[in-house]
Design a binder for these strands. Structure first.
Lengths: 150, 150
DNA sequence: TAAATATATTAGGCTTCCCTAATTTTGTCA
DNA sequence: TGACAAAATTAGGGAAGCCTAATATATTTA
Protein backbone atom coordinates (compact mmCIF):
# COMPACT_ATOMS: atom_id res chain seq x y z
CA UNK A 1 0.00 0.00 0.00
CA UNK A 2 2.09 2.85 1.24
CA UNK A 3 5.75 2.00 1.10
CA UNK A 4 6.41 2.31 4.81
CA UNK A 5 3.12 1.06 6.21
CA UNK A 6 3.55 -2.21 8.03
CA UNK A 7 0.74 -4.72 8.39
CA UNK A 8 0.36 -3.73 11.98
CA UNK A 9 0.10 -0.01 11.23
CA UNK A 10 -2.51 -0.72 8.61
CA UNK A 11 -4.53 -2.56 11.21
CA UNK A 12 -4.34 0.29 13.66
CA UNK A 13 -5.38 2.76 11.00
CA UNK A 14 -8.28 0.60 9.90
CA UNK A 15 -9.39 0.22 13.48
CA UNK A 16 -9.62 3.98 13.93
CA UNK A 17 -11.72 4.20 10.80
CA UNK A 18 -14.09 1.47 11.91
CA UNK A 19 -14.50 2.88 15.40
CA UNK A 20 -15.16 6.30 13.93
CA UNK A 21 -18.10 4.89 12.02
CA UNK A 22 -19.67 3.68 15.22
CA UNK A 23 -18.79 6.26 17.81
CA UNK A 24 -18.40 9.97 17.74
CA UNK A 25 -14.97 9.81 19.32
CA UNK A 26 -12.22 7.26 19.25
CA UNK A 27 -10.13 6.65 22.32
CA UNK A 28 -7.05 4.63 23.12
CA UNK A 29 -9.07 2.27 25.23
CA UNK A 30 -11.43 1.46 22.35
CA UNK A 31 -8.60 0.74 19.98
CA UNK A 32 -6.88 -1.44 22.53
CA UNK A 33 -10.00 -3.50 23.03
CA UNK A 34 -10.70 -3.88 19.34
CA UNK A 35 -7.11 -4.68 18.40
CA UNK A 36 -6.65 -7.01 21.30
CA UNK A 37 -3.58 -5.25 22.59
CA UNK A 38 -2.75 -3.22 25.67
CA UNK A 39 -3.02 0.56 25.69
CA UNK A 40 0.73 1.22 25.55
CA UNK A 41 0.87 -0.60 22.24
CA UNK A 42 -1.82 1.69 20.90
CA UNK A 43 0.07 4.77 22.06
CA UNK A 44 3.15 3.54 20.31
CA UNK A 45 1.23 2.89 17.12
CA UNK A 46 -0.40 6.29 17.27
CA UNK A 47 2.97 7.97 17.52
CA UNK A 48 4.09 6.16 14.44
CA UNK A 49 0.91 7.06 12.55
CA UNK A 50 1.25 10.67 13.62
CA UNK A 51 4.75 10.77 12.28
CA UNK A 52 3.34 9.57 8.97
CA UNK A 53 0.70 12.32 9.07
CA UNK A 54 -2.20 9.90 9.09
CA UNK A 55 -3.44 10.69 12.56
CA UNK A 56 -3.89 13.66 14.85
CA UNK A 57 -3.83 12.97 18.51
CA UNK A 58 -3.11 15.43 21.26
CA UNK A 59 -2.14 13.83 24.55
CA UNK A 60 -5.14 12.59 26.50
CA UNK A 61 -7.41 13.69 23.69
CA UNK A 62 -9.45 12.03 21.02
CA UNK A 63 -7.95 10.30 18.03
CA UNK A 64 -8.64 11.67 14.57
CA UNK A 65 -7.66 10.78 11.06
CA UNK A 66 -6.10 13.37 8.80
CA UNK A 67 -7.41 13.69 5.27
CA UNK A 68 -4.60 11.48 4.07
CA UNK A 69 -5.23 9.05 6.88
CA UNK A 70 -8.88 8.81 6.00
CA UNK A 71 -8.11 8.16 2.37
CA UNK A 72 -5.67 5.45 3.30
CA UNK A 73 -8.02 3.91 5.83
CA UNK A 74 -10.82 3.77 3.31
CA UNK A 75 -8.63 1.98 0.84
CA UNK A 76 -7.56 -0.51 3.48
CA UNK A 77 -11.12 -1.04 4.60
CA UNK A 78 -12.40 -1.58 1.08
CA UNK A 79 -9.68 -4.10 0.45
CA UNK A 80 -10.62 -5.86 3.62
CA UNK A 81 -14.30 -5.97 2.78
CA UNK A 82 -13.68 -7.28 -0.68
CA UNK A 83 -11.44 -9.98 0.57
CA UNK A 84 -13.90 -11.03 3.20
CA UNK A 85 -16.71 -11.22 0.69
CA UNK A 86 -14.54 -13.14 -1.69
CA UNK A 87 -13.71 -15.73 0.94
CA UNK A 88 -17.22 -16.15 2.17
CA UNK A 89 -18.58 -16.27 -1.36
CA UNK A 90 -16.11 -18.54 -3.09
CA UNK A 91 -15.27 -20.82 -0.21
CA UNK A 92 -18.65 -20.65 1.47
CA UNK A 93 -17.04 -19.65 4.75
CA UNK A 94 -19.10 -18.39 7.63
CA UNK A 95 -18.91 -14.68 8.40
CA UNK A 96 -16.65 -14.96 11.40
CA UNK A 97 -14.04 -17.07 9.68
CA UNK A 98 -14.10 -15.02 6.50
CA UNK A 99 -13.71 -11.91 8.60
CA UNK A 100 -10.76 -13.05 10.64
CA UNK A 101 -8.96 -14.65 7.74
CA UNK A 102 -9.40 -11.57 5.59
CA UNK A 103 -7.96 -9.62 8.48
CA UNK A 104 -4.83 -11.69 8.56
CA UNK A 105 -4.07 -11.94 4.86
CA UNK A 106 -5.19 -8.54 3.64
CA UNK A 107 -1.75 -7.08 4.10
CA UNK A 108 0.04 -9.75 2.20
CA UNK A 109 -1.56 -9.86 -1.23
CA UNK A 110 -0.05 -8.33 -4.33
CA UNK A 111 -1.70 -5.46 -6.15
CA UNK A 112 -2.32 -7.87 -8.99
CA UNK A 113 -4.17 -10.36 -6.85
CA UNK A 114 -6.18 -7.71 -5.06
CA UNK A 115 -7.33 -6.37 -8.40
CA UNK A 116 -8.47 -9.82 -9.36
CA UNK A 117 -10.35 -10.25 -6.13
CA UNK A 118 -12.12 -6.95 -6.72
CA UNK A 119 -12.75 -8.02 -10.30
CA UNK A 120 -14.14 -11.31 -9.18
CA UNK A 121 -16.55 -9.62 -6.83
CA UNK A 122 -17.63 -7.27 -9.58
CA UNK A 123 -18.15 -10.21 -11.87
CA UNK A 124 -20.27 -11.91 -9.30
CA UNK A 125 -22.39 -8.83 -8.82
CA UNK A 126 -22.90 -8.39 -12.53
CA UNK A 127 -23.94 -11.95 -13.08
CA UNK A 128 -25.85 -12.78 -9.99
CA UNK A 129 -29.00 -11.04 -11.11
CA UNK A 130 -28.87 -12.68 -14.48
CA UNK A 131 -28.64 -15.99 -12.71
CA UNK A 132 -25.67 -17.05 -14.71
CA UNK A 133 -23.28 -19.45 -13.02
CA UNK A 134 -25.96 -20.40 -10.60
CA UNK A 135 -25.48 -24.07 -11.27
CA UNK A 136 -21.81 -23.88 -10.50
CA UNK A 137 -22.26 -22.20 -7.16
CA UNK A 138 -25.01 -24.55 -6.24
CA UNK A 139 -22.64 -27.38 -6.96
CA UNK A 140 -19.88 -25.81 -4.89
CA UNK A 141 -22.19 -25.29 -2.02
CA UNK A 142 -23.47 -28.81 -2.05
CA UNK A 143 -19.95 -30.07 -2.24
CA UNK A 144 -18.72 -27.91 0.62
CA UNK A 145 -21.65 -28.72 2.80
CA UNK A 146 -21.06 -32.37 2.18
CA UNK A 147 -17.72 -32.31 3.92
CA UNK A 148 -18.69 -30.41 7.00
CA UNK A 149 -19.64 -26.81 6.52
CA UNK A 150 -20.26 -24.56 9.51
CA UNK B 1 0.16 -25.70 12.33
CA UNK B 2 2.42 -26.44 15.22
CA UNK B 3 1.72 -24.14 18.13
CA UNK B 4 5.15 -22.59 18.27
CA UNK B 5 6.06 -22.47 14.58
CA UNK B 6 6.28 -18.91 13.34
CA UNK B 7 5.66 -18.00 9.72
CA UNK B 8 9.35 -17.52 9.27
CA UNK B 9 10.28 -20.89 10.71
CA UNK B 10 7.73 -22.54 8.45
CA UNK B 11 9.39 -20.90 5.50
CA UNK B 12 12.81 -22.10 6.51
CA UNK B 13 11.53 -25.61 6.99
CA UNK B 14 9.78 -25.59 3.66
CA UNK B 15 12.89 -24.32 1.97
CA UNK B 16 14.93 -27.25 3.28
CA UNK B 17 12.33 -29.62 1.93
CA UNK B 18 12.27 -28.01 -1.49
CA UNK B 19 16.04 -27.91 -1.76
CA UNK B 20 16.22 -31.53 -0.72
CA UNK B 21 14.05 -32.47 -3.66
CA UNK B 22 16.51 -30.91 -6.05
CA UNK B 23 19.89 -31.53 -4.54
CA UNK B 24 21.40 -34.38 -2.64
CA UNK B 25 22.60 -32.10 0.12
CA UNK B 26 21.28 -28.86 1.54
CA UNK B 27 23.68 -26.21 2.72
CA UNK B 28 23.38 -22.91 4.54
CA UNK B 29 24.39 -21.06 1.43
CA UNK B 30 21.55 -22.60 -0.62
CA UNK B 31 18.96 -21.75 1.96
CA UNK B 32 20.22 -18.20 2.23
CA UNK B 33 19.95 -17.73 -1.50
CA UNK B 34 16.50 -19.23 -1.75
CA UNK B 35 15.11 -17.41 1.26
CA UNK B 36 16.70 -14.14 0.29
CA UNK B 37 18.46 -13.68 3.58
CA UNK B 38 22.07 -13.69 4.74
CA UNK B 39 23.74 -16.81 6.08
CA UNK B 40 23.68 -15.78 9.73
CA UNK B 41 19.90 -15.62 9.59
CA UNK B 42 19.85 -19.17 8.31
CA UNK B 43 22.10 -20.34 11.11
CA UNK B 44 19.83 -18.73 13.65
CA UNK B 45 16.75 -20.33 12.12
CA UNK B 46 18.44 -23.72 12.03
CA UNK B 47 19.19 -23.48 15.72
CA UNK B 48 15.59 -22.79 16.42
CA UNK B 49 14.44 -25.66 14.21
CA UNK B 50 16.94 -27.98 15.86
CA UNK B 51 15.57 -27.08 19.26
CA UNK B 52 12.15 -28.07 17.95
CA UNK B 53 13.54 -31.39 16.73
CA UNK B 54 12.70 -30.72 13.11
CA UNK B 55 16.22 -30.48 11.83
CA UNK B 56 19.58 -32.13 12.34
CA UNK B 57 22.60 -30.06 11.58
CA UNK B 58 26.08 -30.61 12.86
CA UNK B 59 28.31 -27.58 12.59
CA UNK B 60 29.73 -27.09 9.13
CA UNK B 61 27.77 -30.11 7.95
CA UNK B 62 24.77 -30.74 5.78
CA UNK B 63 21.26 -29.93 6.83
CA UNK B 64 18.75 -32.74 7.30
CA UNK B 65 15.14 -33.01 8.31
CA UNK B 66 14.12 -35.33 11.12
CA UNK B 67 11.16 -37.60 10.58
CA UNK B 68 8.97 -35.07 12.35
CA UNK B 69 10.50 -32.26 10.35
CA UNK B 70 9.81 -34.03 7.11
CA UNK B 71 6.21 -34.64 8.06
CA UNK B 72 5.76 -31.02 8.99
CA UNK B 73 7.52 -29.79 5.86
CA UNK B 74 5.34 -31.94 3.66
CA UNK B 75 2.22 -30.56 5.24
CA UNK B 76 3.48 -27.01 4.76
CA UNK B 77 4.45 -27.69 1.19
CA UNK B 78 1.13 -29.27 0.34
CA UNK B 79 -0.68 -26.32 1.82
CA UNK B 80 1.46 -24.01 -0.22
CA UNK B 81 0.85 -25.89 -3.45
CA UNK B 82 -2.88 -26.01 -2.94
CA UNK B 83 -3.04 -22.35 -2.22
CA UNK B 84 -1.01 -21.53 -5.25
CA UNK B 85 -3.19 -23.64 -7.48
CA UNK B 86 -6.28 -22.15 -5.99
CA UNK B 87 -5.11 -18.63 -6.71
CA UNK B 88 -3.97 -19.33 -10.22
CA UNK B 89 -7.11 -21.30 -10.96
CA UNK B 90 -9.80 -19.13 -9.45
CA UNK B 91 -8.29 -15.75 -10.07
CA UNK B 92 -6.49 -16.67 -13.28
CA UNK B 93 -3.23 -15.38 -11.90
CA UNK B 94 0.03 -16.07 -13.63
CA UNK B 95 2.34 -18.61 -12.03
CA UNK B 96 4.77 -16.15 -10.58
CA UNK B 97 2.16 -14.04 -8.87
CA UNK B 98 0.21 -17.02 -7.60
CA UNK B 99 3.43 -18.46 -6.26
CA UNK B 100 4.60 -15.43 -4.40
CA UNK B 101 1.19 -14.55 -3.00
CA UNK B 102 0.66 -18.10 -1.81
CA UNK B 103 4.02 -17.83 -0.13
CA UNK B 104 3.01 -14.76 1.80
CA UNK B 105 -0.45 -15.79 2.93
CA UNK B 106 0.01 -19.49 3.52
CA UNK B 107 0.88 -18.96 7.16
CA UNK B 108 -2.10 -16.82 7.93
CA UNK B 109 -5.14 -18.86 6.97
CA UNK B 110 -7.32 -20.71 9.44
CA UNK B 111 -7.62 -24.46 9.43
CA UNK B 112 -11.18 -24.01 8.29
CA UNK B 113 -10.24 -21.96 5.27
CA UNK B 114 -7.38 -24.21 4.31
CA UNK B 115 -9.71 -27.16 4.34
CA UNK B 116 -12.01 -25.31 2.02
CA UNK B 117 -9.20 -24.47 -0.34
CA UNK B 118 -8.18 -28.11 -0.43
CA UNK B 119 -11.81 -29.04 -0.93
CA UNK B 120 -12.16 -26.57 -3.72
CA UNK B 121 -9.18 -28.01 -5.50
CA UNK B 122 -10.54 -31.51 -5.07
CA UNK B 123 -13.85 -30.36 -6.46
CA UNK B 124 -12.14 -28.89 -9.46
CA UNK B 125 -10.23 -32.06 -10.09
CA UNK B 126 -13.31 -34.18 -9.83
CA UNK B 127 -15.30 -32.07 -12.19
CA UNK B 128 -12.74 -30.98 -14.70
CA UNK B 129 -12.84 -34.23 -16.62
CA UNK B 130 -16.58 -34.24 -16.70
CA UNK B 131 -16.42 -30.78 -18.15
CA UNK B 132 -18.85 -29.43 -15.63
CA UNK B 133 -18.49 -25.79 -14.72
CA UNK B 134 -16.54 -25.21 -17.86
CA UNK B 135 -18.83 -22.41 -18.92
CA UNK B 136 -18.35 -20.58 -15.70
CA UNK B 137 -14.59 -20.64 -15.82
CA UNK B 138 -14.62 -19.63 -19.43
CA UNK B 139 -16.71 -16.66 -18.41
CA UNK B 140 -14.36 -15.78 -15.59
CA UNK B 141 -11.42 -15.98 -17.84
CA UNK B 142 -12.94 -13.80 -20.46
CA UNK B 143 -13.93 -11.32 -17.83
CA UNK B 144 -10.49 -11.22 -16.25
CA UNK B 145 -8.72 -10.93 -19.54
CA UNK B 146 -11.00 -8.09 -20.46
CA UNK B 147 -9.70 -5.89 -17.71
CA UNK B 148 -6.06 -6.39 -18.26
CA UNK B 149 -4.76 -9.84 -17.57
CA UNK B 150 -1.05 -10.57 -17.87
C1' DT C 1 -14.21 20.26 45.74
C1' DA C 2 -11.55 16.43 47.29
C1' DA C 3 -11.02 11.64 46.96
C1' DA C 4 -11.58 7.68 44.20
C1' DT C 5 -11.63 5.76 39.78
C1' DA C 6 -10.73 5.51 34.97
C1' DT C 7 -7.85 6.47 31.27
C1' DA C 8 -3.55 7.67 29.11
C1' DT C 9 1.27 7.88 29.02
C1' DT C 10 6.16 6.79 29.96
C1' DA C 11 9.90 3.79 31.05
C1' DG C 12 11.97 -0.15 30.33
C1' DG C 13 12.15 -4.97 28.89
C1' DC C 14 11.41 -9.13 25.83
C1' DT C 15 11.10 -11.81 21.44
C1' DT C 16 11.54 -12.38 16.60
C1' DC C 17 13.99 -11.77 12.70
C1' DC C 18 16.91 -9.55 10.21
C1' DC C 19 21.66 -7.38 9.47
C1' DT C 20 27.21 -6.42 9.24
C1' DA C 21 31.79 -7.39 10.61
C1' DA C 22 34.95 -10.51 12.44
C1' DT C 23 36.39 -15.19 13.08
C1' DT C 24 36.68 -20.07 12.35
C1' DT C 25 36.48 -24.09 9.70
C1' DT C 26 36.54 -26.48 5.43
C1' DG C 27 37.79 -27.25 0.71
C1' DT C 28 40.77 -26.56 -3.28
C1' DC C 29 44.77 -26.49 -5.96
C1' DA C 30 49.49 -25.05 -7.17
C1' DT D 1 51.20 -29.48 2.14
C1' DG D 2 50.53 -24.70 2.54
C1' DA D 3 48.18 -20.76 0.96
C1' DC D 4 44.02 -18.96 -0.72
C1' DA D 5 39.13 -19.02 -1.31
C1' DA D 6 34.65 -20.37 0.07
C1' DA D 7 31.46 -21.40 3.45
C1' DA D 8 29.87 -21.39 8.13
C1' DT D 9 29.65 -19.48 12.48
C1' DT D 10 29.79 -16.08 16.30
C1' DA D 11 29.26 -11.59 18.26
C1' DG D 12 26.78 -7.80 18.53
C1' DG D 13 23.26 -4.58 17.07
C1' DG D 14 18.71 -2.60 15.25
C1' DA D 15 13.68 -2.26 14.11
C1' DA D 16 9.05 -3.75 14.99
C1' DG D 17 5.57 -4.96 18.20
C1' DC D 18 4.22 -6.53 22.01
C1' DC D 19 4.22 -6.51 27.27
C1' DT D 20 4.14 -4.99 32.67
C1' DA D 21 4.72 -1.67 36.21
C1' DA D 22 4.88 2.94 37.45
C1' DT D 23 3.29 7.55 36.84
C1' DA D 24 0.44 11.34 35.15
C1' DT D 25 -3.82 13.28 33.84
C1' DA D 26 -8.88 13.39 33.47
C1' DT D 27 -13.35 12.24 35.04
C1' DT D 28 -16.71 10.93 38.24
C1' DT D 29 -18.90 11.01 42.49
C1' DA D 30 -19.68 11.49 47.41
Amino acid sequence: MSPDMTASMEDYLESIYILNERKKHVRVKDMARQMNVKPPSVIEALKSLEKKKFVIHEPYGYIELTEEGLKMAKRIYKRHKNLKNFLSCVLCLDERTAESDACRIEHHLSKETLERVMGFMAFMDENQGKNKNAAMFRDFNVYFKSFGNR
